[in-house]
């Protein structure tokens, strides 16, 4: 079976995010970018499926500007077989990404799409679910274990109350959670080998997708600074503050 894995180029998780002075977004100039950590987990899972012999081919897809090719190269160096780059400088919202994934899935016919549960830049947590809905496939989100059967998969999900196990039919969309695996590093020799792996280029128009944003950003601002606490003298004072100032009881 084929496994499709979308990989997003995001601001590196180590970077301290700064809001642009004009409030139009966050600073991305001269900022280190890397693969969304959840997508690394998805690639790792797909590559392990291939190493176990249950997947034949792993295809990594990235959507965005030219530099997404670096992200794809990382995916290829981790073990993906080939890449697809949907090249665009447009702002991409989850719905547009899901539509493009659908178009690519219809062409490539994977049995599974492993999507990161969210991207650490906008934290939407929508793309996987939207993709499954558009394709009419089963979905299992927040996976911490994926066990493949014959045309089925048993997925352990991380939910608020604990763990939930679902049986799904393939083809399916699975979104990866933090504990699914620990992704490997792209090794130096594999980085060299990845150069020979193909990356196919396309654009949103060729996939028949209109990427025009549906959401308008009014303003981006820093979260409010945490206020210092106060010390209270007595239980009475505490209760009175909770009642009168914090108004929580």
């Amino acid at each position: 079976m084929k496994v499709l894995v979308p990989v997003k180029r995001v601001i590196d998780y180590n970077v301290k995010i700064r809001v642009k002075p004009d409030g139009s977004g966050v600073e991305t100039q001269n900022v280190k970018m890397s693969m969304n950590p959840f997508d690394e987990i998805s690639i790792e899972e797909a590559v392990r499926m291939k190493e176990k012999g249950v997947a034949e081919e792993v295809i990594a897809v990235s959507m965005g500007p030219q530099q997404c090719q670096e992200t794809l190269r990382t995916a290829l160096a981790m073990g993906a077989d080939r890449g697809i780059h949907v090249k665009t400088d447009d702002v991409l919202e989850p719905l547009a990404v899901a539509k493009m994934l659908k178009a690519i899935a219809e062409k490539e016919q994977p049995q599974m799409i492993i999507v990161g549960k969210q991207a650490i830049d906008d934290d939407c947590n929508q793309t996987g679910q939207m993709t499954a809905a558009l394709l009419g496939w089963s979905q299992a989100t927040f996976a911490s274990v994926i066990e493949l059967g014959e045309g089925t998969a048993k997925v352990t999900r991380e939910i608020d109350g604990g763990l939930e196990t679902v049986d799904i039919k393939l083809p399916a969309v699975v979104t990866s959670d933090l504990r699914l695996n620990e992704p490997r590093y792209a090794s130096l020799p594999n980085i060299m080998k990845a150069k020979k792996k193909p990356i196919e280029e396309m654009d949103p128009a060729s996939l028949g997708v209109d990427t025009t944003p549906r959401v308008k950003t009014l303003k981006v601002s820093e979260p409010p600074k945490r206020q210092g606490g106060v010390k209270v003298e007595s239980v009475q004072e505490l209760v009175s503050k909770l009642v009168n100032e914090a108004k929580v009881i």
């Binding site: 890397s34 670096e70 160096a77 590093y185 980085i191 150069k195």
Partner: peptide, 17 residues
């Protein structure tokens, strides 16, 4: 080069983690 950028990325990730 793109390769060197990729080596740097891997090394920096290894160093950070």
């Amino acid at each position: 080069s793109p390769d060197q950028a990729a080596f740097r990325e891997t090394a920096s990730q290894f160093a950070a983690e």
